[in-house]
Structure formats: structure tokens, C-alpha cells
Amino acid sequence: MDNDKLLKELQSKLKTLITENYEEIKPQLEKDLNTFLEKSKIKLERWLFLFSSGDLTEEELEWLLKSQLDLVSLQGLQTAGISKIKLNTIKNNIIKIILNVIIGLIIPTR
């Protein structure tokens, strides 16, 4: 599966998951996820390739995804200031969703 297709599928699956499970915080979560995916596109493509080729383990991929979210939070700190950072509060939800979708998409094709 090529990375572009994988990323598109990831985005569409995330959208469905948010609608089904996080209706009450959907606008905020959707906004945060889009920011995250937009800022992380190139890295995500590279990590997906390394994960699908077996060079990164699931645990390593999770570590990297979390570090990327930390980086986005760091950038947010500079632009929005400390009190306005909300991304971190739903960090675990975001990572869980992304990881589950990636694993669901990649493991069967390995």
C-alpha cells in the first residue's frame, strides 16, 4: 500500500472514529488531529514506511508518535501560551486512535 493512500485512509478512519466515539468533543478533537496530521505528514510517511518494512516496532512507533505530539505541544506553547494548550489533555486519546488505525491498516499487509 502506498503512503499517500495510507494517510488518506488514516484520515478517513480517524474521522469516522471521532464521530462515533467522541461526539461531545468532536470539533476540538478534529481540529487538534488535523493540526497534528498536517504538521507531521512527512514524518508520518517515513515512520509508516519503516514500520511496514519491520525496521520500527509497534512500541517504537508509539514512542515516536508521542514525541511528535510533544513537539506540536512545544510549538503551541510558543504561539498560544501556557494556559491555552489543550492538545496535551487529549494526547492519549489521539495517540491511541492513530496507533490503532495504523496497526489495523499495516499489519494485515505485512
Binding site: 514524518k43 525496521d55 516496532t57 517504537e60 514512542w63 515516536l64 514525541s67 511528535q68 510533544d70
Partner: peptide
Amino acid sequence: EKNLLAAFFKRWETKETLSPAFLEESKKQV
């Protein structure tokens, strides 16, 4: 408990060594 510099060293200590691909990618992040 985050996933940047101190967490990198913590992981290195726990795992003893890190894989080359993970090392390169996590180093870039830090």
C-alpha cells in the same frame, strides 16, 4: 514521562541499546 530527551535516555537505559532506525528517528525528534 514525555517522549523527548530525558525519555530517550530512560528508554536507552531500559533497553540497553536502541535499534538504528529508532535511534535516527527519535534523535531527530529531540
